[in-house]
Design a protein around this nucleic acid. Structure first.
Lengths: 254, 254
DNA sequence: GCGGCTAATTATGTATACATAAAATCAAAA
DNA sequence: TTTTGATTTTATGTATACATAATTAGCCGC
C-alpha cells in the first residue's frame, strides 16, 4: 500500500523517466540501440505521451541521443568521455569553491559542511573499513560536494554542476563507487578527507585561488584512480558497470 | 513559397520552441509569469503536444522554470546571474582551450581558426567601425568561440559549453552585442582580436595553462565590460534587452 | 545470385479528447 | 466589510487515435 501510494504520488512522466533510466543504466538497453516508444510503453506501463516527455528529459540529461530521422538512441561513452566528464566536474566545482571563498561565507553557512567533515573523520578513524562504512562514506562524499556547490550561492553555477553530474560516472557518488574496485580504498578515504578539510580551510580563509586549485586537483586524483580501476575493463560496458555501482542520493534535502 | 517550405521542413515542436523562445526573449512574457499552454497553442499555431515538448526543452535550456503545482513560468535573472554565467562560460572555454593545447591540434584543425582570425584582423584594420562591420565582428567572434570549443575534441566539454551558451547573455554573440552600448567599441574589437591570437599561439605551442588563463581573462574582461554597460539599467528587463541585441548564429556549419 | 525498386508494415510526430487537480470567483456568514 | 468555504471553471497531465515518414521485407528484373 505504501508502495502504491508512493507510485501514485509521482507523475507518470517521472515514473517513466526513472524506469527508462534504470533500463539504460542497468544495461538492458545497449548504447547505439534505438529506443522504441511502444516497447517503452510496455515496459514502463505508462502511455506514450509521458514516455516521450521522459525521453526528451533523458536526452537533455545526456543519456540519450536524438536520431536525425526521429526517435532516440542510447548514448555511448568512451573512457576518455568519462575521464573528461570528471575533469569537467572538477573544473566546475573549482569555480564554485572559488566563488564561495571570494564572496565569503558565514559561519552558519559553513556549519553543515563542517559537520559533514566531522562525520567523515569519525568514519575514517575507525580502523576497519566495512562495506557499510564505505557506503556511508559515499553518501557523505556526495553530500559534501552538494553542500560545497550550494556554498557558491550562484544559481547558474549550481545549475551547471547539477547538469554535469547527471551522468552517473560524473556524479560524486558515481566515480567514488567506481574507485571501490581499487585495493587502497581506505587510503583514498583519508586523502579525500584531507582534501575536503583543506578546501574548507581555504574557503574559510577566503583563499579563492587555493580553493579552486584544490578542488581541481581533487577531481584529477579521482580521474586518475578511476582510470586505473578501468584499465582492466573493456570500455564499451562502462556505463552499466558504473551505474550499478552508483548510489542514489536523496535529492530534496537542502 | 520559400517561407512556407522552410516552415514545413522543421517539426512543429521546433517551430513552437522557436516561437516561444522569441516571445520570452522579446519580453512578451515577463519573468515569473506562468505560461499558459492554451495561450501558447494560440500564438504558435501548433497543437498542445509539441507545445509541451517545446516547454520541456526550454526548461532544460534554462529559459523556463517548472512550477511545483504544474506548468512553467519564465525564469528571471539577476545581474549577478548574468555575470556568473559569463564567468562560467569562460571557465568552460578555458578548459576547452587547455584540452586543445595539451592534446595537440593538427595544422589542418587550426586552419579554420586562423582564417577566422585573419578575417577579424582585416575587419579591424579598416579605420571606421560601421554598424555592418560590427555585425560581422559579432558573427566572427561567435564562430571563433565555436571553433575553439570544437578544438577541445571532447564531446562532454563541447556539450556542456553548448548548454551553458543557451542563455542569450551567456553566448558569445549575446554578451558581445551587449557591449555595443559601450563607447569604446572599436577598442574592444582590438583587445578581443589580440586575445584570440594569443590563444591560438598558446594552443599551437601546446601551452595549456596559458591558453586556459587567457580564455578565462577574456571572459572576465567581457564580464567587466558588460557590467559597465548594464550599470545604468534596471536589472529586471535585462533579458529582453540582451536578447534583442543577440544575433542568431548559423548552427549546422561545423 | 545479387541488386534495386516497390509495397507494406511499423514507428514517430501530431492532434484531440478526457480526467483530475488547482485556482478563482461568488456567496454566505461572522 | 472581510474571511472562509464551496462551487465552478480552467489548466495541466494523460491516453489514444490518426497521419505521415521511414525502414524493412519481398519481389521482380538484370
Amino acid at each position: 500500500m505504501n508502495d502504491r501510494d508512493a507510485e501514485r504520488s509521482v507523475s507518470q512522466t517521472v515514473r517513466a523517466q526513472l524506469a527508462l533510466r534504470d533500463q539504460i543504466l542497468s544495461g538492458s538497453l545497449r548504447p547505439g540501440e534505438r529506443i522504441s516508444e511502444l516497447q517503452a510503453v510496455e515496459t514502463t506501463g505508462v502511455s506514450r505521451t509521458p514516455v516521450r516527455m521522459a525521453l526528451v528529459r533523458l536526452e537533455e540529461e545526456g543519456l540519450l541521443e536524438a536520431i536525425p530521422s526521429g526517435g532516440f538512441m542510447v548514448k555511448g561513452f568512451s573512457e576518455r568521455d568519462i575521464l573528461d566528464s570528471i575533469e569537467l566536474r572538477g573544473t566546475l566545482e573549482g569555480l564554485a569553491a572559488r566563488f564561495a571563498a571570494e564572496r565569503g561565507v558565514s559561519a552558519r553557512d559553513l556549519a553543515p559542511l563542517k559537520e559533514n567533515l566531522a562525520e567523515l573523520e569519525t568514519l575514517v578513524n575507525q580502523d576497519q573499513v566495512s562495506v557499510e562504512a564505505f557506503s556511508v562514506y559515499v553518501t557523505l562524499n556526495a553530500r559534501f560536494h552538494a553542500l560545497l556547490t550550494e556554498l557558491s550561492r550562484s544559481a547558474p553555477v549550481i545549475r551547471q554542476i547539477d547538469r554535469a553530474s547527471a551522468l552517473p560516472f560524473a556524479s560524486p557518488s558515481g566515480f567514488v563507487m567506481a574507485q571501490s574496485a581499487l585495493p587502497e580504498a581506505h587510503q583514498i578515504l583519508m586523502i579525500a578527507q584531507e582534501h575536503h578539510r583543506i578546501v574548507v580551510d581555504a574557503i574559510e580563509n577566503r583563499e579563492g585561488a587555493r580553493a579552486e586549485a584544490i578542488m581541481r586537483e581533487h577531481a584529477r586524483l579521482a580521474a586518475r584512480n578511476l582510470r586505473l580501476a578501468l584499465r582492466n575493463r573493456t570500455h564499451l560496458d562502462l556505463l552499466p558497470a558504473l551505474a550499478q555501482a552508483a548510489v542514489r542520493v536523496p535529492q530534496g534535502e537542502s
